Simulated assay, not measured.
Amino acid sequence: MHAWEAVQKSVDYIEEHLQENIRAEVLAEIAGLSPFYFQRLFKRLVNKPLQEYVKLRRLAEAIDTLNTGNPRILDVALDYGFASHSNFTRAFKDTYGITPEEYKKHRPLLNTFVKPILSLGYEMADEGVPLIVENIILEIRREHLDTPEVYLGLSADVSITAQTPVGERTGIDVPGQLWISYHKEKKAIDQYIHPNIELGMSYSADEEKETFSYFAGGLAKNIPQKLNGGFVQQELPEGDYIVCSIEAESFEELVSSALDQAGKYLFSTWLPRHGLTTKPFSAEKYNMTLQETNRMEIWVAPVTLSKE
């Protein structure tokens, strides 16, 4: 058994027992490792210490529970292993920047830590051949765009450090909130955009400010002389691309855990192993005219890594 397979067993166990007491010794036994070596290997492969990971997954599941009916915050806290209301509130605010009460009142989208699929760090998808991992289907191909595609939508700055998987931290999901705003306001530009083709783009990283810009919008059918209401124009340039298509069982899973896992796989595993990096942007493309409604694509412009 590979080391990642042993740790994946413990990750799967954690997921099934988030509402129970989880002991490192039990997890180590499941993985067939000593407690000391298990915790070192877990941190290396999951990129979080064991207890921190358990806390983040419990908080992520607690958010789902808070969205189901109208449970008492104290009950949710106790169900997920927090000793008290205040202990839960402290952990919640440290992780997401708001209290559970504020979350229940405003219901912002939160950037949570998802359960990892460790095999994605060790499996290699051939171009044009689907890779099936758990409930996700990935397929990678090369694409050439002959002419630029122009999109109209909204843009916002995002903190790099507070946006998983880039910064591996959690907080308000600014791109997700931007999509909500776009879908509420896009009727103002309906006459100019294709109703079923949308694009999200990360670009213009500012290392000094530790931010990048994110755009959410629709494919332009024609371009107005002037854009009002905060709408901006963004372009997917002509050129060569690596395209990673993603399919999942539900749209909610597609734009959360599946997108997170696919992004990590593409940028951390597939591209480096092919001697590639990318130009400083990436795009998420949605085409609702396709039969596979729970499908999207990540578009990146490849650059060959220097051998020096």
Rank of each mutant, 00 (worst) to 15 (best):
E101W: 05
Y103D: 06
T99Q: 03
G97F: 08
Y80K: 04
D79P: 01
I132R: 11
Y53R: 04
V54I: 15
K104D: 01
S86G: 12
G128N: 09
A91C: 10
Y103E: 03
E61P: 04
R90C: 06
A83N: 11
L50T: 07
A125T: 12
Y96M: 06
L59C: 05
E101Q: 09
T99Y: 10
E101S: 08
T112K: 07
L50M: 02
A60D: 11
T65N: 04
T99D: 06
F113A: 09
N70E: 13
E102R: 01
F82Y: 15
L118S: 03
H85E: 09
T112P: 00
Y80A: 05
S86L: 14
K93S: 13
V54T: 07
I63A: 01
I63L: 07
E127T: 13
A83K: 14
L118R: 02
L59D: 04
P71D: 11
P100M: 09
L59W: 05
I63T: 05
H85S: 06
L66G: 03
K115D: 04
K104F: 00
N111P: 02
F82C: 02
N87L: 03
L74R: 15
N67Q: 15
V133T: 09
T112I: 13
I73N: 00
G69R: 12
P71Q: 13
N111G: 03
A60Y: 07
K55L: 13
M124T: 14
R107E: 06
K104M: 13
Y96K: 01
G97E: 07
T89P: 01
F92V: 11
R58K: 12
H85P: 00
G97Y: 02
T99K: 01
A125D: 09
P71K: 13
P108L: 13
P100Y: 12
E127C: 12
K115P: 04
G128T: 13
L66M: 14
K115M: 09
T68M: 08
S86T: 14
K104P: 00
N111A: 08
K55C: 06
N135G: 08
T68Q: 12
P49Y: 05
L118I: 14
L120F: 08
Q51G: 03
T65L: 06
L78V: 15
L50A: 01
L131Q: 03
D94S: 15
Y122K: 07
R90G: 10
T112C: 05
L110V: 11
M124E: 15
T95G: 02
G121A: 13
K105F: 06
T65K: 10
R58N: 06
R57E: 11
P71W: 09
A62I: 12
G69S: 15
A91Q: 12
I117T: 10
M124V: 15
R58G: 06
L118G: 02
T95K: 01
R90V: 14
K93C: 09
L56I: 09
K55I: 13
I98R: 00
V129P: 00
L50Q: 02
P130N: 10
I63M: 01
N70Y: 11
T112G: 00
R58C: 08
Y80I: 12
L131I: 13
G128C: 09
L66S: 03
I132C: 03
Y53T: 08
V129G: 04
P49H: 02
I63F: 01
L131Y: 02
N111F: 05
I73F: 01
T65R: 12
E102M: 06
L59N: 04
Y53N: 05
L118E: 03
L109T: 14
N70G: 12
I117P: 00
